[in-house]
Simulated scan of single mutants.
Amino acid sequence: MENKQSYEETGYLFNVDILIKSRSNALALQAMIEMLNNSENIADFRIKSGMELGNLIESMLQDKRKSLIKSGASTVRPLPDIRTRLKTKIEPPETCPSSPAEKKIGTTEYSSQLHEWITNCIRDNRLTRLTTNRSGQPTSMPCRILNFDESTQLLNVYHVDEKQVYSFKLSEVIEVI
């Protein structure tokens, strides 16, 4: 009888936190990616957190917004950040208008902000987390918004984990983050 031993390579998955010293987050990220790519034992990797890229762009955009607000403070009033309103619930803000016309204006303004935010998500191909309630069953999914039909209030989303497209009425959406 011949005793053959076969050595089969198996993959093992580790979750680690790595501290890399560098002048910036981008350079540290680059150094880490180079280390991971140069190792022949690492088959694949996924970076889940720690990337702080785009902060300079974001701060410049905020400065630009502030300067626009200061220059036209009497005529331009800043719109509330739609993401914070959407994070709580997708409903028009509850106010007590004195007339139905005022209520319609508030709802229309909110609807246009919502449409603008959804359009930005579609254009930027932004990953969002959608919480819905269909038939009494709450569901949370990471997705990308594909299409929004304002006339039928229908939202088409691509579930990134399941790789499927779903359609939701806006009334079924509880939260968008």
Rank of each mutant, 00 (worst) to 15 (best):
N120C: 05
T119K: 01
E102G: 01
T84E: 11
Q62W: 03
E91N: 07
D161P: 02
N15E: 05
V76M: 13
S74Q: 14
T10L: 06
P80Y: 05
M141D: 04
T132D: 01
I174H: 00
S22W: 01
K4C: 09
A73N: 12
P142E: 06
G136R: 12
L79R: 10
N156F: 07
I177T: 06
L79T: 05
N120V: 07
C143M: 04
M51N: 12
K70L: 11
E8V: 15
S135V: 12
I145F: 03
D17C: 05
T10N: 04
E116W: 04
R123L: 15
G136M: 11
L53E: 15
D63F: 03
N55C: 06
N15A: 10
F168V: 00
S98D: 05
V176C: 11
M1I: 12
M35E: 13
E150P: 03
S71M: 12
I105M: 05
V165A: 10
S74I: 09
C121T: 09
S39K: 13
V76F: 10
E2D: 04
F45I: 06
L154I: 14
I57C: 02
A28G: 15
M51F: 14
I118Y: 03
P100N: 14
C96N: 10
Q113V: 03
R144P: 04
N133L: 14
N147V: 08
M60K: 11
A26W: 05
E175R: 15
F168T: 00
L86P: 01
S24N: 14
C143R: 00
R123W: 09
M35F: 07
L56A: 12
K89I: 03
Q113W: 08
T88L: 03
R83W: 06
E58R: 06
V173L: 09
R85P: 01
I122M: 07
Q164V: 15
T75E: 09
R126S: 11
D81E: 11
T132K: 00
M32W: 15
K169F: 14
A31V: 03
R85G: 10
P78N: 04
P78M: 07
Y7R: 12
S151H: 14
N15T: 09
E116D: 13
S59N: 09
S59E: 14
S171D: 15
I177A: 02
L13H: 05
S98F: 05
F45H: 07
S67Y: 10
P92D: 08
E150K: 12
R23E: 14
K89T: 05
H115I: 11
K104M: 13
N125Y: 03
M141N: 03
L146M: 13
T128N: 05
Y12F: 15
K4G: 07
